Amino acid sequence: MTYKAILNGKTLKGETTTEAVDAATAEKVFKQYANDNGVDGEWTYDDATKTFTVTE
């Protein structure tokens, strides 16, 4: 399944996708990606669109 992350960081804005077996696995991948890029904020998840959003 393909999951998407939308990054609304102070220094990084954009989107990325990952293939994962479930939302929990995708969330770990996206949170690591955000952390590696200095983005730390509030996370939300929309199951209907399989989209995570982080906003700083």
Results as ranks from 00 to 15, higher is better:
Phe52Asn: 00
Trp43Pro: 01
Met1Glu: 14
Leu12Thr: 10
Asn35Leu: 15
Met1Tyr: 15
Ala26Trp: 00
Asp22Thr: 05
Leu12Pro: 04
Ile6Pro: 03
Gly14Glu: 11
Leu7Ile: 15
Ala23Asp: 05
Thr16Tyr: 15
Lys4Phe: 12
Gly41Trp: 06
Lys4Thr: 13
Thr25Asn: 07
Asn35Cys: 14
Gly9Leu: 14
Glu15His: 10
Thr16Cys: 15
Tyr3Gly: 02
Thr17Asn: 05
Asp40Pro: 04
Ala26Ser: 00
Gly9Asp: 03
Ala24Glu: 13
Val21Gln: 12
Ile6Val: 11
Gln32Trp: 05
Leu12Lys: 10
Tyr45Thr: 00
Gly38His: 09
Ala20Lys: 01
Glu42Gly: 05
Thr44Tyr: 11
Thr44Ala: 10
Thr25Gly: 08
Lys4Leu: 07
Thr11Met: 10
Thr55Tyr: 08
Gly41Val: 03
Lys50Tyr: 09
Thr55Asp: 07
Val39Tyr: 10
Gly41Cys: 04
Lys10His: 13
Tyr45Trp: 03
Gly41Ile: 03
Ala23Gly: 04
Ala34Tyr: 06
Asp40Ile: 14
Val39Ala: 04
Thr25Ile: 08
Thr44Gln: 07
Gly38Lys: 06
Ala34Arg: 00
Ala26Val: 01
Val21Arg: 12
Glu56Ile: 08
Met1Trp: 13
Thr53Pro: 01
Asp47Ile: 09
Thr51Arg: 02
Phe52Cys: 00
Gly38Phe: 07
Asp40Asn: 13
Asn37Thr: 06
Val54Ala: 03
Ala20Gln: 06
Thr11Pro: 04
Asp36Met: 10
Ala24Gln: 12
Ala26Lys: 00
Glu15Pro: 03
Gly9Tyr: 06
Glu56Asn: 05
Gly41Met: 04
Asp47Leu: 06
Leu7Gly: 02
Thr2Trp: 13
Thr11Tyr: 14
Glu56Phe: 08
Lys31Gln: 08
Gln32Asp: 07
Glu56His: 06
Ala24Val: 10
Gln32Leu: 09
Tyr33Asp: 01
Ala24Leu: 10
Phe30Glu: 00
Trp43Lys: 01
Gly38Tyr: 06
Gly41Arg: 01
Gly14Trp: 15
Tyr3Val: 02
Tyr33Ser: 01
Val54Pro: 01
Lys13Ala: 06
Asn37Asp: 03
Thr44Val: 11
Val29Tyr: 15
Glu19Val: 15
Asn35Gly: 09
Ala26His: 00
